[in-house]
Write a protein that binds this DNA or RNA. Structure first.
Lengths: 147, 147
DNA sequence: CAAAGCTGTAATATGATATATTACAGCTAT
DNA sequence: ATAGCTGTAATATATCATATTACAGCTTTG
């Protein structure tokens, strides 16, 4: 399995919103062109970023704006905003019907849940260390190096 | 998204193989009963564990055996064995067509790939710290506490 | 050694989820 | 007032996880 591309799409969008912030007509069609997906996907991803308080938008008007400085937006913020993993059950899909008439089946959850959370937590902590300022900086540097 | 339940199924199976190792008829039907999935799923998961060198099996004969002590089998070994995540592309699904005519689209991969690997790596390192001995120990303890 | 039990694996079906697409009401900008 | 745009619903399509049926061929048992 893989984490939905909504996550990398969201990072791409925020990077583009910053890079093209002084330009007119940065609408969902323009962004969709850069990302390579349908404009509706862009609008729904931006909608989730808005719900999470990461961007401000004005209905009917193009040009979403970042709600915080880039160095205060982490991969974790975006990952949570776009529902990258199942909120209720977590990163790991536990098989749903361990047999309660079997001692192992009855207790396997107890023995695993804490450890699965630790793994997920290790991943999320690493995501909190990475900010969009890092990505934007490297993107800009890569563009300058293109000559 | 979520990591396929093949992972927790595999941990459950290994735990059961250890717990019931002195018992007859620990075949795919028995294990499927404990895990709560179809016996064919059990056989294919065990097949992957065998390919990874974690268990020994004898075709036509029940009772798979662990190839290594429990404390030398980590979550990471199992996660790799059962193909929990896409081997080629990694944990994150990158949107597939960033526009190469856009400076951001051309360079977003360069700016993100290393960081996505770092996140995946943090998760995998944590998985290497957890062994099946831990899980089996806690499962046995939980069974004893059941009275 | 014959019968019964079991594995390994292929083929197919079903269900869930991600992404794409069409459509449009209603807001904004010119 | 017209054109542009967003937000969102509804629907379609593709992909993948899991379930299920089937069976050849190996192993164990009496």
């Amino acid at each position: 399995m893989q984490i939905t591309s909504r996550f990398t799409i969201a990072v791409h969008i925020i990077t583009a919103l910053d890079y093209f912030k002084d330009r007119d007509r940065v609408n969902s069609d323009f962004l969709a062109g850069s990302v390579g997906v349908n404009p509706v996907i862009v609008r729904t991803v931006i909608g989730k970023l808005r719900e999470a308080g990461l961007v401000h938008t004005l209905k009917g008007s193009s040009g979403a704006e970042l709600a915080r400085p880039l160095n205060e937006i982490t991969f974790y913020d975006i990952y949570k905003a776009v529902d990258s993993v199942n909120e209720d059950e977590g990163l790991f899909h536990f098989h749903e019907q361990p047999n309660t008439e079997c001692p192992v089946g009855r207790n396997i959850h107890k023995a695993m849940d804490g450890r699965l959370s630790a793994v997920q937590n290790a991943m999320e902590e690493e995501m909190k260390r990475i900010t969009l300022a890092d990505v934007v900086e490297d993107t800009r540097a890569a563009i300058l190096e293109e000559e």
